[in-house]
Amino acid sequence: MRNKTFHSLLYFLAFWLFVGLSFILTNINTLDSSMHTKLFEAMPHSGVTHEVTAVLLNFRALDTLLEVGVILLSLIAIHALEPNFRYTPLSFENTITNTFVAILFPLIALYAFYILYSGSYQSGGAFSASALLAGGIIILRLVKPRSFFVPKELILRFLYVSGLFYFVCVGMISLFFGSFLEYRDYIASFYIISIESVLMLSLGAILSAYFINAVQRVKP
């Protein structure tokens, strides 16, 4: 009974939160964003033509570095749980899916690279590409669980950390010429593309490890 009154009180509060918040947010009158104008002033020096990529990997690259850190960190935290949950994993293995995947996976990988490189002038970039790659690996794992090839633990760990490591290394190199993660004009597009490529591989490995680690874990 007490639970019921608690719930109805909760729904009541939630309703008024909804009404109040929508009223406030729809009546917000924005001041001119100086960040927005500064962004378009700085675009020619960013090394890419797509604004989102420029913000992610040049103007606010530190956020992205920390975010890669978060992804790696959650993988480490998952390792702390010793996730060898042994059970028959989801699998859809038969001849049709096998053939399908044999054609599909190279296409997915190719498309991931396309998304990665198109990130410098249109929508796309390392995160979507790595998610695609990881999706491909997960499908492969779902369809061919037995023939699935897993490298040695140490090599895998190198792969996991390579994204953050390369990012930090770029930061340290740029310290010699200016601030942390400072790159402009010509050199910037090279750095951005290289960071994105390494990020795609390492994030792809981490994202698929979220899925695969839970099922099979190789002892070092």
Partner: peptide, 11 residues
Amino acid sequence: ALAEIALGAGI
């Protein structure tokens, strides 16, 4: 949209 499909819905 790309990231949402791949990360949010997919993974």
